[in-house]
Nucleic acid binder design. Structure first.
Lengths: 214, 214
DNA sequence: ACACTTCTTTTGTGATCACATTTAATAATG
DNA sequence: CATTATTAAATGTGATCACAAAAGAAGTGT
């Protein structure tokens, strides 16, 4: 019985979902941008069926909002909601970082330093999308070590919601500073100082959003 | 121009979604129970289209899992995942409760006490579903006052994920005790003691789940 | 220039179908 | 009786269509 390795070829909707999700999380879509069934169906060369499932799925995750007439668009976050989401990041990410701390070995730290240099590059070259991407990769690489998929899912859920707005933020304000807090995070990881790690993660994730809410 | 009040009649999928979501959250479905497109379509007397969108939406929210062959079922939570979800409740619910504290007036407290008596009733009459329902209503009534929809959404998201498992817990262990911590929560609300409120909410929400993970 | 109406286009919803894959039920074999 | 092979039923995916509601465009009149 020659069991072939199942390719488990991803379905259309899986592929489209991942691509759109990535676009939203990295800020490739601006707040309030509307997406239509036939629009995404056409741009991905599929029928309406996969397109609608993807849009509804993204809406269920908060990445899109559904207007009262059934249209889909990226959310326009009020200041109150942005404050909430920042608070959630400040609550969840220190926790998952602390859980990753005991498992953070040198291999990981090296990788984080590498990603950090990519962030600095993106700052210099003023590429907001690369900046966001590398920044999220820094955090995700750390959090993956926590072996806490449920927490990570909520964290990424929030990243999804703030994606379009973050893009706007970085375009307006610009990214002037190299990620200083990331260095503190790395230091705390090396020394195994949990409370310091929690504090640095919290300030790092709330810093960027605070400057927008006022 | 006689603007009629828009009824905004909910679509099929909205109605089905709400009913199924409620069933899952209250533990009306057992862990590992599978749902099929044609099954729910038939039981709600609609075509496959609304049914599939509802199932996918619930899957996106973590209320259902999708097997690697595309089937839908309620999740069977491992101990690790249950611990994570308990930790998330212990992290999020004290925060949102604290935000509700300044706005918790007597009207609300009276309502909470009324709900509390319903909980005691459900305990006496050994009705686990009513118990879960009243218990969640107690928490939700409080959290609604926080005016923090983003946080509340995450909290309810977690309730959804643990719904079927909670039902199993209460059937096995039984609900012996009246909600003692709720009284402490009410006391903290009356006295305006935030740190006490946070502590009591945390212990209340983690207590039930801890007894299952070991 | 502006408000209001009318008409055209766009859009989401639900239904139905065909197809491939998976699950189960049944039969066959040792 | 247990195991494997075969067949039948069930299931998710994607496509297409009809339809009503909404959004946008074009007039229309003041």
């Amino acid at each position: 019985m020659a069991e072939e390795a199942k390719i488990n070829e991803p379905s259309f909707q899986d592929r489209i979902y991942r691509e759109l999700r990535q676009k939203i999380m990295l800020g490739d879509l601006t707040p309030g941008q509307s997406l239509t069934l036939r629009g995404v169906a056409e741009s991905y060369e599929v029928s309406m069926t996969p397109a609608r499932e993807v849009l509804r799925r993204l809406a269920a995750e908060g990445a899109l909002i559904v207007t009262n007439t059934g249209r889909f668009m990226t959310p326009i976050l009020s200041n109150d909601r942005l404050e909430e989401l920042a608070a959630l990041r400040g609550l969840l990410e220190p926790e998952i970082a602390a859980r990753a701390l005991p498992r953070a070995h040198l291999t990981l730290i090296d990788r984080l330093q590498l990603i950090n240099s990519r962030i600095s590059q993106a700052v210099i070259q003023k590429e907001p999308i690369s900046y966001v991407q590398a920044n999220l990769e820094f955090h995700r690489s750390l959090y993956l070590r926590a072996q806490a998929p449920a927490i990570l899912a909520l964290v990424e859920n929030i990243w999804l919601q703030i994606g379009p707005t973050m893009r706007n933020l970085y375009e307006k304000v610009g990214v002037n500073e190299t990620p200083v807090h990331h260095l503190s995070i790395l230091a705390a990881l090396k020394s195994g100082n949990e409370s310091e790690l929690r504090l640095m993660v919290r300030t790092d994730v709330t810093k960027g959003l605070r400057m927008l809410t006022r």
